[in-house]
Write a protein that binds this DNA or RNA. Sequence first.
RNA 1: GGAGAAAUGGCAGAGUGGUCGAAUGCGGCAGUCUUGAAAACUGUUGAGGGUCACACCUCCGGGGGUUCGAAUCCCUCUUUCUCCGCCA
Length: 422
Amino acid sequence: MLQLQAIRDHKDEFIKALQKRNVDGESLLNGVLFLDEKRRTTQTQLDATLAESNKLSKEIGMLFKSGKSQEANVIKEKTGSLKEESKQLSEALNGINEELQTLLFQIPNVPHNSVPSGNTDDDNEEIFREGDIPKLIEKAQPHWELAKKHDIIDFELGVKVTGAGFPVYKGKGARLQRALISYFLDKNAEAGYTEIQVPHLVNETSGFGTGQLPDKEGQMYHVGEDDLYLIPTAEVPVTNLFRDEIVNEKEFPICYTAYTPCFRREAGSYGAHVRGLNRLHQFDKVEIVRVEHPQNSYEALDGMVEHVKNILRELKLPYRILRLCGGDLGFTAALTYDFEVFSTAQDRWLEISSVSNFETYQANRLKLRYKDENGKSQFAHTLNGSSLALPRVLAGILENYQTADGIQIPEVLVPYCGFDTI
RNA sequence: GGAGAAAUGGCAGAGUGGUCGAAUGCGGCAGUCUUGAAAACUGUUGAGGGUCACACCUCCGGGGGUUCGAAUCCCUCUUUCUCCGCCA
């Protein structure tokens, strides 16, 4: 959520930046400013009424104490109209606040200066590419064929137990999953991220805190009976740890890493692009989350990008980094870098990580603050990234590492797996 | 799941209808003393709105009610604790 003060101060810049998302910032922000103005005048009127009525109440109290109950009763009669007035004003104020809130929830984050304008993922800007695309054997297969051949992932079995998009990993496949999780967590811990385990269901307030609600309501599984949501990413529970907190400036940088399964309804997805591991309803991911001082957040973002690069280098997977264009940028992000691994057998790039700076957008919703040097509360910056999402990494490994003698395991994973070939 | 008790500032903990945003202690911050630190002493220290700055307003788990006036009384929800039941 954008800050009112920031909108007041930077309206024109914001409108221009929002154009990169093809969002009509002008009418939205003008609407906000109009309501904000209305809110303040109403609030002022209400405050004055309450002040008057507080004053009278105190007088009544004193009069009763000194035994002048008759005079007290005279004043008492005056309070009736004040009460009525304040009731009306506070109802009006509540209405305005609700309207303002609803409007603010509709406005996405303001893109960072470096974000290119554009509508679709075709307009994303490739900023980096590394790793050799392997020359595959004659009869190279996509990962879903390989998974079947080696009996390491059973998609049909998942369909029987749950439905499409819930695969069952078997034998070496399951072990490789576990190896990847451990390896990623170890790498993140090594880089200074504290490992934590968090709930896989969150309440509605948490959904609002990180911005999944109300924007992506339909993308999350909802447990109606208990009004809880299955997490679409560890970002939600981990970032919400800091909801309603005022952290000490000295604690920065705050760095956490967590492994969780992620649940996404993926309503509307279909076709060849969702085959195999490409798009699932349940998948595993190791996430990194940072809470930063606003001055350092972009440096931190760069650090996270370097960190993910290192992991992909160690895995020896060919990858590229994209800077997302305005149209492809998530609702809450100011700047996002996507990592994609080249899946040779499918001849396409697969997104395996998304690293973003949310600036104060989430912090404002979360009321996540720190004290600046003047002792004033300021919103912190939040960031997160996948480090990494498992299924497509697995797809990349299976496809790129296939040989005539089976699938090789990347060297760094062998100690975690206990085998070097599938 | 059943019965009872409770929820107050970073923490502990007073406060049962009026001047209480709230005693006191701990912690934090600043200072005195000290070569430095500790101890001791002094001061300061919740959040949000509003204002150029004050004034002023709101907040004592959430929501609603009674009252001129609510941390305090009533209703309701949530959470925690104790006992019982069940259980990985």
